[in-house]
Design a binder for these strands. Sequence first.
DNA 1: AATATCATGTAACATGTTACATGATTGG
DNA 2: CCAATCATGTAACATGTTACATGATATT
Lengths: 179, 179
Amino acid sequence: MARANQTEIAVLGALSVEPMTGYAVREAIRDVLGHFWSESFGQIYPALARLEADGLVARDPEAGGRSAPYALTRAGRARLAALLGEPVVPSPPRNGLLLRLFFGTVLGDEACAALVRDARADAVARLADLARARAEIDAEQPADHHRYALLTLSAGEHAARAAIAWADESLAALGVGPR
Amino acid sequence: MARANQTEIAVLGALSVEPMTGYAVREAIRDVLGHFWSESFGQIYPALARLEADGLVARDPEAGGRSAPYALTRAGRARLAALLGEPVVPSPPRNGLLLRLFFGTVLGDEACAALVRDARADAVARLADLARARAEIDAEQPADHHRYALLTLSAGEHAARAAIAWADESLAALGVGPR
DNA sequence: AATATCATGTAACATGTTACATGATTGG
DNA sequence: CCAATCATGTAACATGTTACATGATATT
């Protein structure tokens, strides 16, 4: 009981959009939530098994036996709403880039600059990715669901632009060019 | 061997500034690296024990027995430099706020707005925290080490300002005021 | 027929958190 | 002398990742 599992939110949430197999849940989490969430492979199937045992998801035995999609039950939808209402669990900060930069005197200016350049390139790539995702959403039929997806996209864009601005400032402070 | 432990970087890094007890290492990680790194209590002492066994840190038996500070050995300093040079290990994204917002249709606009307001308040508080840390550094004697600390501070400030801007936009998009 | 992809799961391992337990030292 | 803080550690638990294992279905 009382497993306020974050994984359950992701899995139940994916199934709240439409019924799908475990395999598809995994792909949805990777491809749709990937900008701000991830679940490792070995978490999803056990989670689905637990959820099924608890009656929160169910498979239609009619539809093709093995690859029958999981669907939210009424209890499952209620559970999802309850989990979403719980306070966000703060994940402790763990930024490997800043950890290395902080000890820059040991690492040396050259290596620091390389790290910052890499981080900048990552942010640029992330921004391009987000632009692609945004274009995809814009191309679809308007849906209420999209409003929220766009909020999460926007968060990623703001963060990526901030990372780029920071990288440019930092490279200047380190006395090297962006390239 | 080959334990490319992130924890080791933090612990060796702390000791690279000056020798200190395990207790002080814990405080240094919390108070100095806290904006971008964290180690839970139960990681630090075992890590120190491993590092001592590997000859990377040592305690001076002369200085007060029990509370003798750990100091980096020559090998320890070399190890730190090597670890810092290793590629940053990317931590999978796990943003509980965005995970909840994404399923906003289930959660409801009111609750979403509350989440965003909380996130905004957090970012404002973080910004104030960082300003305090910056003032502290500015008050000290200039040191080479500070240049890098300021880079990490700046990263936090950029991120916090981006979070605030995003929150304001999002609250407008949700059709509610910032308060 | 062979290859790729869909589909489901387990086991071993690695990491990380929390609660518990103990005792010394210092300041009031 | 009492409380707070310094100091060190362990054990149980929770979480998360990776590699392994298996087989069905669809595509070329």
